[in-house]
Design a protein around this nucleic acid. Structure first.
Length: 139
DNA sequence: GCCAACGTTGGC
DNA sequence: GCCAACGTTGGC
């Protein structure tokens, strides 16, 4: 079981949209970046991820689960692009802001801090547990 | 709204 | 295969 982070602008696709899809989940489509795509190819059903709101909010707001492994992205005919399906598991009791993450020395190596533009990224188990604790939320 | 960082494209 | 130019992202 591995841990990940999915980033989205809430105005395009936010946590509430994800929750509305229920257990059926939804494609994490539209990714056109090779690094992000490669991480999705590495994902397995049952992996967990953080759902992060970029732009105005800049906070981890919930936990999602990978419910389908990588498959072709239905929003393009270009077969280079793949995506997984994810479903909402639970919201964070308290969203964990980028500011909090940057302020925590245990999270200094997070990709979110080191490479802020990558939209799909791996999270270590320690980072996972630390962020969940900051969010007062069960991992 | 600006700008730095990064990824991609295309000419050579 | 290199690198300059360009476009996009996301934090500030």
């Amino acid at each position: 079981m591995q841990y990940w982070l999915f980033k989205s602008e809430p105005s395009t696709w936010g946590w509430d949209d994800q929750v509305a899809k229920g257990d059926a989940g939804e494609e994490w489509d539209g990714v056109r970046n090779y690094q992000a795509r490669n991480f999705m190819r590495d994902m397995a059903r049952g992996d967990r991820g953080f759902f992060y709101h970029s732009q105005k909010e800049k906070a981890v707001v919930g936990i999602v689960e990978v419910c389908a492994p990588a498959h072709p992205d239905s929003t393009t005919d270009d077969d280079r692009w793949a995506c997984v399906d994810i479903k909402a598991v639970r919201p964070f009791e308290r969203p964990v802001t980028l500011e909090q993450i940057k302020a925590d020395e245990r999270l200094g190596e997070m990709v979110l801090v080191k490479n802020s533009r990558l939209s799909v990224q791996p999270v270590s188990k320690d980072e996972w547990l630390t962020v969940c604790a900051l969010g007062r939320t069960n991992p």
